[in-house]
Nucleic acid binder design. Structure first.
Lengths: 230, 230
DNA sequence: GAACCAATTATTGAATGCAATTGTTTATGA
DNA sequence: TCATAAACAATTGCATTCAATAATTGGTTC
């Protein structure tokens, strides 16, 4: 390995920088509401402004940043209400997916989901929150994918990515985390038994309690920030 | 027409060219599957490649075109199945919206919808398909907006735009067209009476029969094209 | 005449330079 | 001292230029 530079940077610079900035936003490195300076990012990522500005357009379409003409790009600040609205949409999309997935999921998909669930359970036992979180997201996406509706998969992936970082806080509480793992086991069991209507309700309940936990964590977090920087 | 130079072209060139190309795709001027030559569009719209390429990134995010590195942009070709999948998503999104809209719609919104409906009915009487079509789309968007969920409105608008041109063929049949107007009247009535569950079912039925008509029209159209250019 | 390969052309990707707009600072007067 | 305006600096928008990649043409050989 170690080709030319340290980073792989495969594909176009535009795609590279898009992923980089996206990660910076998701990880919280670029804080919501803050303005993004083109020059700074250009120097940091060692690319020109052209691909960066193309990335901005993409990320604006994804709803991660907001571009005002002649006034630069800012990371969108989502209120609790905004996130809750998105969650509601995600629940709705998964509801649509649930009944179709219960009917159309292939055996291979069920096996793959079982495998992902085992990995996720292991991540929970090992207390590796980030790994758990990613596997969790992947499982939900796979359930939606099992509905065999490309438009649904695309919209779900997009909306899910938009509020990803807000949901990360959901499993801070160990008790809630343990229950989430349990719920997942039952959800996959219901999918295996192909009980669509029940699956739909379980997913809804799962998301609602998950979001409830995340919201509480976020509110605490915001209070801390409010006290920390007056 | 042909007032390209006379146009105001307010806002950034990027926004301008994005709308131009979007219209070209929606109107069918740029045919699905065809490759888009940057130079040609640049000369036609009298702008440089930079804002055009930014527009490409936006339109790719909207799902209207596909960009392959070093191979240019092509208008996405959607199969009947793809469109049907999107319709299913749109129905799902409107289902989510219906119950909330029935509860949260303001009197002002109901008045505005009634006004739009009158305009639309007039367009039907005048046999102005394009005007009817736009008002129709606007009404459905307004119903979704009445649910007061910004994320839902955004996702619905995006997905609706993606397959707009495929639904245009829906009201070619005069009988179906007349029934669609009737259905709309009943739908708005149900919204006024705030019967969410019923509204949901009416919207679903409305879309399914509308899509059925559009699909038949599209299949005929495709057969004609197949015979026309062997 | 067909197939293969090299050279040329066309097209896309990215960097740079310039113009236009906005935000900031400083000077000036009330 | 505060408000206002003018000059300045910083930043963005866009056009142009250069580089890299893909497509095409022409020629040679079998």
């Amino acid at each position: 390995m170690n080709d030319q530079t340290v980073e792989p940077r495969r594909g176009t610079r535009s795609a590279f920088v898009t992923q980089q900035v996206r990660d910076m936003i998701t990880s919280g490195e670029l804080t919501p509401g803050s303005r993004i300076n083109e020059r700074v990012l250009v120097e940091r990522l060692d690319i020109s402004r052209t691909p960066l500005r193309e990335a901005f357009k993409i990320l604006e379409g994804e709803g991660l940043i907001s571009i005002r003409p002649n006034a630069g790009a800012t990371v969108v600040m989502l209120s609790t209400e905004d996130v809750e609205a998105s969650i509601e949409v995600l629940i709705g999309l998964e509801s649509i997916a649930a009944e179709h997935a219960a009917r159309r999921a292939t055996e291979a998909e069920l096996v793959e989901l079982a495998d992902l669930h085992n990995q996720m359970t292991q991540a929970w036992r090992d207390n590796v929150l980030m790994t758990y979180f990613h596997l969790n997201q992947e499982i939900h996406q796979k359930i939606v994918d099992a509905a065999k509706n490309p438009a649904l998969s695309r919209v779900y992936a997009s909306e899910s990515a938009r509020i990803r970082r807000f949901r990360f806080a959901g499993n801070r509480d160990p008790e809630r985390w343990a229950r989430a793992v349990e719920e997942h086991a039952r959800i996959l069991d219901t999918l295996r038994r192909r009980e669509g209507a029940l699956l739909r309700e379980m997913l809804r309940a799962h998301h609602l309690s998950g979001w409830g936990a995340a919201r509480r964590a976020l509110e605490l977090q915001q209070e801390d920030e409010g006290q920390g920087a007056p």
